[in-house]
Nucleic acid binder design. Structure first.
Lengths: 104, 104
DNA sequence: CTCCTGATTCGATGACTGTCGAAGCAGAGG
DNA sequence: CCTCTGCTTCGACAGTCATCGAATCAGGAG
């Protein structure tokens, strides 16, 4: 990644593969909501235990979604003592956002 | 749709379902590239025949991806005579983009 | 060391998705 | 009417994915 706005120049095959990976990670309601919960949480980070309670889903499932977000580069996790804290990577979000709209 | 930026307030369950539908549609390299080809094409619209040649994919497959984009509300198709022309819906793209970054 | 708790990994399973060829549909032109 | 061409729909199949319970790992506390 990346790249001129989508509406200006056609994406190359490689660019579209990279970009699609990010959008695909965001293409699940649970993951989008996780992303939002982490991003909007006080201090810019959230512990997994804060996230699990919000959903009617098992721990392993939440963990799986966090892994997908992590592998897409959208979040990072850091262990501090007993708990693991996640925070978002704002620049990847910003880049993904920028591709969707024309230059100003 | 929608909605305060992702990083300001946590998405509701309903919002995340709606939004995820859009990102999911963009979560495939072929579809992202189709979107880009249509958006960046002269006149803001492209005929299916313009699109098919770019990929090593069968007609039905391209048609399938266009349908997914159409059902996500990202593009609209209009038949004029023999050919069908697609164009993007810029406001949905803009809204999806806006959710990803904080207010200015 | 042993137990407890928070979180991830593993393995299985049912559902969904990308792809194709074949068939169908819609206009244009004989 | 028939035929040709552009595009979509249908049916099938292989691959991927979301989900769970069970097992595992990593620290903290006794």
């Amino acid at each position: 990644m990346c790249c001129a706005p989508l509406v200006r120049d056609p994406l190359s095959a490689e660019q579209s593969v990279d970009l699609a990976r990010v959008f695909k990670a965001m293409g699940d309601p649970v993951r989008l909501r996780l992303l939002s919960l982490i991003a909007s949480h006080a201090g810019g980070e959230a512990c997994v235990c804060d996230l699990t309670d919000v959903f009617d889903l098992s721990g392993p499932t939440i963990s799986h979604h966090l892994k997908v977000l992590r592998e897409a580069g959208l979040i990072t996790g850091e262990r501090r003592g007993t708990w693991i804290y996640y925070r978002v990577c704002p620049d990847l979000l910003a880049r993904a956002s920028a591709v969707l709209v024309p230059d100003r």
